[in-house]
Design a protein around this nucleic acid. Structure first.
Length: 820
DNA sequence: CTTTCACTACTTTTT
DNA sequence: GTAGTGAAAG
């Protein structure tokens, strides 16, 4: 198989029948579908929930369903399909085009966010907004919140901008206004959050900007407060499809509901047909506000709803599926679902217990090497997953040493790099002079003698005069701000002149040309070129890359000029199911671009495309390294996953919280179900964390795997598995059966978890230590506790073992150590 | 205003 | 181990 990275390609593989290319015959579209898939494709008349287990061919169902609708006479302009990633959207569109031809381009297939931007730009007038608003990502948003927090003189230790940002984001995801947040605030933090939120929202409007959460929330407000607009969209979109429904948050849930409309809608527009696809077991973004409730209670939300489970898996061996089922079964309150496969038992799952993370990586690397040597896999077929990005380093080290080709997905992404953001900030200021965050970002980058002091003076002036920061800056340049030192004033004058000059350049040139001039005239490029820091060379490359991106964008836009959109509901008659039904041969290319302004369009594109390039194209001949989160939606013939240790995976922060633990377990489920033929799970007994060595017990998820599915290549050495336990958390038996011992320990841990509040930890599991205590450890000998950190499941102690060094140890589970 | 040095604080992150 | 911040010195 040459395409391990194709998104959810599953359903196609065993059923090789090529889809009909022309004149889609509904029957052809159903060929090769199993009965459940077929039903999901053809169902009509009520809302539909497709519960799509991993690898069950959900993308195929979605695309076939769209094609089936089109074959049945639905106009493409009446279809809206929503995904979470641009990649998924692009793929869905491409596959529908394959099935029904180019008229599929008239559908709206986009992410939640692009879809909202498209609506908001079109309806900007209605909202009293300018349609070239900037889109703030998490970083911009954090900066703005930071500015506000500083102005409000909040202690940045007690109220870190990041924390405030998370809270505000959560409020927006719940569609709560600052006023509502203030009413509900029950503690100090919440009151401060509400206060900052209010200012933040004002400042976003002043900056003519929206953050990601606003895009959704504002669209919801638009639809709720402007019935004519809502009716327009409801008339237009008669079919709404939502992918990855388990990842929707409350705001997105309401958005979908508003788009679809209800029976009781006064306008008399019948609700659109809704089809959502998701798998509660693959919800791994609850920490971003996603709520499984939306999928779990779909039938309650839509009483007429039909629910169709897809349980046949076309991806993995039965062994892999049994393992996945066994793990996910441990989650409470879940609707049982059993994946099954016709592709046979396959290989057992290989388990490996390494002494430390280096040994673990070496095992993985050697195994990859021999698999490829034996011709059982190509590098392309292989992926290595880990819980957190920093785990990639040790794998990279070994891979480099052994000369294995690899590619790391994720980490610091292209559009998050400082130099890229700086460059884009210049463009944003040129596009939207009110964009305060971008303006203040580049104010003194590269250094031009406008320091914090001067910036603060200008900010205060802006506040006093109730003008934008940009306007205040111009007044400062003209000497109208007396508090400003002459030096600073001159520096600001120079900067304003520079901006004016660049503005003229932007007006007369394309984006790539403008960008190039910006880098030249600001001295940004010169500074990097003059530097001897090797990092700066990389930065230059990234900027060159950004110019290339801009050039390609311009060319693509020029090649496919924007046809005028069909206008906004404000000026078009709302009798519009047929509004764009004319000329079915014309492509609806306005997809994500405002027609007029290529700079705005470019900025929108880069704001909403996370990084489409981060996933390597297949055929590179490289092993792919990524986090478990990035792995969702992908599949590989061979999967390695390391760090299966309590404290690493499940992550430390999740150990004490059943909700978070359930999410970690879903992550384990996602991990296992990525593998098609072979799966390797490993753990290390000792691992350096934050520069300090740390011992970790086996992941409880490992112990949930049925023994008969496992092929343990190496287990915990006997001398360490049979400790003389003399402490309060109970004995561990003889340790003859090592994995058995592990599961005993996991069970103890689990039990302790549930009794946290009732009984506390004291004598059940954790070793209770405090600084100054003397301990004896089976391996390190005598030691003195230097400090302790965390509570309950998170409890660790830093212990000085003298000659054996200082070690940080977890106190939960089977610590081969006792207090003296 | 800029540089430097020490201090801290660390998940995951589709848009 | 490192990146990002904050205070003090240049």
């Amino acid at each position: 198989m040459s395409a391990p990275l194709d998104l959810e390609f599953n359903g196609d593989r065993p059923q090789a029948a090529a889809p009909a290319r022309s004149g889609p015959d509904p029957e052809d579209l159903l060929a090769g579908l199993n009965p459940q898939q077929r039903e999901a494709v053809t169902h009509s008349g009520s809302p539909l929930l497709v519960v799509a287990g991993a690898g069950s061919g959900k993308t195929r169902v979605l695309t076939s369903r769209i094609a089936y609708l089109l074959a049945g006479g639905v106009h493409p302009g009446q279809i809206m399909a929503i995904t979470f990633t641009n990649k998924a959207a692009a793929e869905m569109k491409e596959r529908v085009v394959d099935l029904v031809g180019r008229r599929a381009n008239m559908m709206w297939v986009s992410t939640f966010h692009s879809m909202c931007v498209r609506v908001l730009r079109r309806e900007a007038k209605t909202l009293g907004l300018s349609s070239n608003f900037s889109i703030y990502d998490a970083d911009d948003s954090k900066r703005l919140i930071g500015m506000i927090a500083r102005e409000q003189e909040l202690d940045s230790k007690r109220y870190p901008p990041k924390q405030l940002g998370i809270h505000i984001s959560n409020l927006k995801n719940e569609l709560l206004t600052p006023e509502e947040a203030a009413e509900r605030a029950g503690n100090d933090m919440e009151r401060k959050v509400a206060q900052v939120y209010a200012a933040y929202r004002r400042r976003l409007v002043d900056s003519n900007a929206m953050d990601f959460d606003d895009l959704i929330m504002r669209t919801v407000e638009l639809l709720q407060n402007h019935p004519a607009v809502a009716e327009y969209y409801r008339r237009r979109f008669r079919h709404v499809l939502v992918d990855e429904y388990q990842d929707t948050n409350h705001a997105q849930y309401v958005l979908v509901r508003e788009l679809v409309g209800t029976e009781t809608a006064e306008s008399g527009v019948a609700p659109a047909e809704l089809c959502v696809v998701g798998d509660a077991d693959q919800s791994i973004y609850a920490f971003r506000g996603a709520t499984i409730r939306n999928i779990e209670e779909f039938e309650r939300d839509y009483p007429q709803a039909r629910s169709i489970p897809l349980e046949q898996n076309y991806r993995s061996t039965q062994t892999i599926l049994s393992a996945a089922n066994a793990v996910i079964r441990q989650n409470p309150n879940r609707r049982d679902k059993r994946l099954w496969s016709e592709s046979g038992e396959g290989e057992r799952i290989v388990g490996y217990v390494a002494d430390n993370e280096h040994d673990e990586a070496a095992f993985v690397a050697n195994e990859i090497d021999s698999l490829v040597d034996r011709g059982e896999a190509t590098f392309n077929d292989i992926a290595v997953f880990y819980r957190t990005n920093n785990q990639s380093r040790v794998f990279e080290e070994v891979f480099i040493r052994l000369g294995l080709p690899y590619r790391v997905v994720g980490g610091v992404r292209f559009y998050e790099r400082r130099e890229v953001r700086d460059a884009l900030a210049y463009l944003r200021v040129l596009d939207n002079p009110d964009d305060t965050v971008s303006l203040r970002r580049i104010l003194n980058v590269p250094k031009r003698g406008i320091g914090d002091r001067a910036e603060a003076v200008v900010a205060v002036h802006a506040e006093q005069e109730r003008i934008s920061f940009g306007a205040a800056l111009r007044e400062a340049a003209k000497g109208e701000v007396p508090a400003l030192a002459t030096r600073a004033r001159n520096a600001i004058s120079g900067f304003v002149e520079l901006l004016d000059e660049l503005h003229a350049v932007a007006a007369a040139n394309d984006v790539a040309e403008t960008l190039d001039t910006v880098l030249e005239r600001t001295g940004y490029r010169g500074e990097l070129e003059a530097s001897d820091d090797p990092q700066d060379a990389t930065r230059l490359e990234n900027l060159t890359e950004l110019i290339t991106v801009a050039r390609e964008f311009t060319e693509a836009t020029a090649a496919a000029p924007e046809p005028a959109d069909e206008g906004s509901p404000s000026d078009a008659a709302p009798d519009a199911a047929s509004a764009d039904a004319g000329d079915p041969g014309v492509e609806d290319r306005d997809a994500d671009l405002p027609a007029d302004d290529s700079l705005s369009a470019f900025l929108e594109r880069v704001s909403l495309v996370a990084d489409a390039d981060s996933l390597p194209e297949s055929g590179d001949g490289v092993v792919t390294l990524m986090t478990l989160h990035s792995a969702k939606g992908l599949e590989f013939p061979v999967v390695f996953s390391g760090g299966w240790e309590d404290g690493v995976f499940p992550h430390n922060r999740a150990l004490g919280d059943t909700t978070e633990l359930a999410e970690e377990r879903r992550l384990a489920y996602v991990c296992i179900t990525r593998a098609r033929q072979r799966l390797y799970l490993s753990r290390a007994m000792m691992r350096s964390a934050w520069g300090q060595p740390m011992t970790n017990p086996a992941s409880r998820f490992l112990t949930e795997l049925p023994e008969e599915l496992m092929d343990w290549r190496r287990v915990e050495p006997a001398d360490r598995a049979a400790p003389q336990v003399r402490s309060t958390w109970g004995s561990r038996g003889g340790g003859a059966d090592r994995t058995g011992a592990d599961s005993a320990q996991a069970r103890v841990a689990e039990r302790g978890m549930r009794s946290t509040s009732a009984k506390g930890w004291k004598d059940t599991i954790a070793l209770k230590l405090e600084a100054g205590d003397k301990v004896t450890h089976d391996k390190y000998g005598l030691g003195t506790v230097v400090s302790t950190e965390g509570e309950g499941a998170r409890a660790t102690a830093t212990i000085d073992f003298g000659a054996s060094g200082t070690v940080k140890l977890m106190l939960i589970g089977s610590v081969p150590m006792a207090k003296l």
